[in-house]
Design a protein around this nucleic acid. Structure first.
Length: 268
DNA sequence: CATAGAGATGACAGATCAGA
DNA sequence: TCTGATCTGTCATCTCTATG
């Protein structure tokens, strides 16, 4: 059925995604503000609270956050979405040129659902031809189109400037709370460090103080104990939980589980 | 789908050093 | 004294394959 046809097409800062089957997104970190449009099917986003972007929905995701996504095709059809990343340098330039700034650190929702907007929809449709003829999408055009997206977003809702033009890097936040909420995201320690506003060295030191264990070890143990709970108390299956708790492949999950608990996960 | 194992590699732990 | 950057050996983790 699924001959692995190209599912993701990347042009500069544009991403066209299509899937015939329900599929997890592979990236768990949002490096830049991202504007997305669900053309067909829906996206389930875990942050870790679940948010659903239905067919036809548009959303703006703030940069510097962890999100797991599941792409769900419509019945009998194909999942299709377009995303555009809004790079910091372009946003800074736009901010300077138009003298629009955020009034302070952004405190609103990290995933903003945008109400239906004919102009934004028209904009996304204008991007479609480039995915079939990528050669036409020059760097200059990419910049123009990105600028257009920013302009349209501000027209759509001027208050989005608070999100778009917040150029602050993450400040030093409560490490314990953050880790307990985000341990199931499988990203490098350096990523956790940045997101909590620390250097890698500082992160390790603080981490050791709080959890009495190095980050890597604590993470696997935390993930395994969560998996244990899901398997034992909730009666779920290994193949269902290993991704949820932050493992990448089933093979390694089984191995690690058995090493810690002495039993294979399927025997619980 | 679940497990096991082997082999490759890349991330992490932990120490050191420099600057604030 | 605290913070951040850098380095290195080791081991954990991933990939791949085989098997039930």
């Amino acid at each position: 059925m699924s001959t692995n046809m190209p599912s993701d097409l990347i042009l500069n800062n544009l991403l066209y995604s299509c899937e015939y089957e329900k599929k997890r997104g592979n990236e768990q970190f949002v490096p830049e503000h991202t504007l997305g449009f669900m053309m067909a099917g829906e996206s389930h986003l875990y942050t870790p609270d679940i948010r659903i972007l239905a067919e036809g929905a548009m959303g703006l995701a703030r940069r510097n956050q962890l999100v797991k996504s599941v792409k769900v095709p419509p019945p009998g059809g194909m999942f299709r979405s377009i995303s555009i990343f809004l790079p910091q340098d372009l946003l800074r330039r736009y901010s300077a040129e138009n003298n629009i700034t955020a009034s302070g650190p952004y405190t609103g929702d990290s995933l903003v659902s945008l109400p239906k907007d004919a102009f934004l929809e028209g904009y996304f449709n204008s991007l479609l031809p480039y995915f079939s003829q990528p050669a036409h999408f020059s760097k200059a055009l990419a910049d123009l189109k990105t600028k257009e997206a920013i302009e349209l977003l501000l027209q759509h809702n001027y208050q989005l400037k608070e999100l778009l033009f917040d150029f602050n890097e993450p400040h030093k936040i409560d490490l314990e709370a953050f880790m307990l909420q985000n341990y199931m995201f499988n990203v490098p320690v350096s990523r956790f460090a940045r997101l909590t506003g620390r250097s890698v060295a500082g992160f390790k030191r603080d981490f050791e103080k709080i959890f009495k264990a190095p980050p890597g070890q604590w993470l696997t143990q935390k993930r395994l104990s969560e998996a244990y709970y899901l398997l034992k108390e909730k009666g779920r299956k290994p193949s269902e939980v290993y991704l949820d708790v932050g493992f990448e492949n089933l093979s390694h999950f089984s191995f690690a589980f058995k090493k810690t608990y002495g039993v294979a996960p399927s025997l619980l």
